[in-house]
Amino acid sequence: MLEIQSLNQFYGESHTLWDLDMTIPEGKCTVLMGRNGVGKTTLLQCIMGLVKVKSGDIKMGSQSLLKLDAEERPRQGIGYVPQGRQIFPMLTVQENLEVGLPIREKGDRKIPEFIFDLFPVLKEMLHRRGGDLSGGQQQQLAIGRALVVNPQLLILDEPTEGIQPNIVQEIGDIIRMLNEKMGLTVLLVEQKLPFARKVGDRFCILDRGRQVAEGEIDELNEQLIKEYLTV
């Protein structure tokens, strides 16, 4: 589904991602893990074209994403939920969801009804401003907005951050359903181990901009957790 090949990225003189190779297999939920500051969010921003890549490649199928502007990448079938949600606080829930409609086929530019089935609260608050929603509701809105583009790959950057526990559980259930029943490939950055184990099929661990471990989620053992994940 997604292939990252020999990827290097710099912030000024700081070398952030080092010759990174990673595969996100189709139909799986891959959890990207690592301590703060190891390059997880930077990698997602590279995939989405929000930061420049120094060298290497990122391929979605046979298409190199690096040849496309950031505005074109969702058209390749990628939905993105950034860290901190980044909804438009002054727009209504409906207007936030409609942001993704131009990505859809011309004859099908309406908000898919299944989004309201997943998140009934969004239908109830359709005409409320995004900034008036709770943190958990805003996260649901951010996920719904990403789903509007009809993605094949859904990328989420710490979707449980700052969210109340009952909504965390609901978001986990929805990610599993999207992956298992709707066939979406998922790439998820997550710090919470119980959540990662609940939703993930596979894990990849970054340390200082390099991939240091990967495997099935059941292979995420105490040695790896102690060496690369505990603070």
Rank of each mutant, 00 (worst) to 15 (best):
G77N: 13
F116W: 05
K198R: 15
E124A: 15
M177N: 07
E222K: 05
G136F: 14
I78G: 04
K54P: 01
E216R: 03
E219S: 15
E190H: 00
I171R: 07
V93P: 10
K67F: 13
E219Y: 12
F119V: 11
L153Q: 06
Q63V: 08
I171K: 11
R176E: 04
L2Q: 11
I143P: 03
L2S: 14
L43K: 10
L122R: 13
F114T: 13
S55F: 00
I111R: 15
R109C: 06
T41K: 06
M125W: 14
L65M: 09
A213P: 06
Q139S: 06
E72N: 09
Q83I: 10
S14P: 01
E113N: 15
L65E: 01
A196S: 03
G77C: 03
L141S: 12
R202V: 03
N36W: 10
E3S: 14
F88D: 11
G215S: 04
P151R: 02
M90P: 11
L147Q: 00
Y228M: 09
V212Y: 02
D132N: 15
G49Q: 12
L224K: 13
R109K: 11
T23H: 04
G172K: 05
R128Y: 14
F10E: 06
G77W: 07
R128L: 12
L188Q: 03
L154Y: 02
G79P: 01
L118K: 09
L97H: 08
M1F: 06
A213D: 09
T16F: 04
Y80F: 10
L153H: 01
G107Y: 08
I78S: 03
F114Q: 11
I171Y: 05
G131K: 05
Q63Y: 04
D173E: 12
G131P: 11
Q211A: 10
L188A: 02
I115T: 06
K106R: 10
G135F: 13
Y80G: 01
K59M: 05
N36G: 03
S134I: 11
R208Q: 14
A146Q: 00
T41L: 07
G172L: 13
R35D: 02
G100W: 00
Q86I: 10
D69Y: 07
Q76P: 09
Y11A: 10
V186A: 02
D207L: 05
T16K: 07
I58S: 08
Q94D: 15
M22W: 02
G56W: 01
D157Y: 05
R73K: 12
I143M: 05
